[in-house]
Amino acid sequence: MKIAHDNAERHVLTVTVDNEPGILAKITGLFTARGYNIDSLTVADISDDHAISRITIVTNGPPQVIDQIEAQLERLVPVHGVVDLTTAGSHVERELALIKVTGTGEARVEALRVADIFRASVVDTTTESFVFELTGAPDKIDSFIALMRELGLVEVGRSGIVGMLRGAEGS
């Protein structure tokens, strides 16, 4: 008995929703119930009266599954709209990471030097540690973390992606 797996592609979806209790559970539950993947998910309210939230979901799946995800999300009553940034056009993706590194001597100096190259800022320091803050595309953060691994990486926290279409038009 073989279990089938499909070829997946990565998509970034933004979902605008009414900011009501249980909406996040509805959305994440939909993904688990229907067997869709969530690579990352971010959410925060975006309106003055805190009534509307924007969720950015990074998911992967074959094109027909991505289309189904969009349709299933739009079916939820509190969902106002879904935009697939990956198909909608050129877009930016940004993620924030906090990275704690410990070390002394040359490693500490090197960590600071690499952070400078990546334009990471130091948001906390002791004589033997730094906490760096880095914002950027996910692969930039990936490579920064890979370099820090050799220089005393202790802890990583990442926000997940927030994305937006380029250009003057709102999505």
């Binding site: 209790p21 249980g22 559970a25 009553v77």
Partner: peptide, 14 residues
């Protein structure tokens, strides 16, 4: 109840 019925209702409210 809203948790249990979340995925078998068109919509639910507390």
């Amino acid at each position: 109840t809203v948790g249990i019925t979340r995925h078998c209702t068109k919509h639910n409210y507390l």
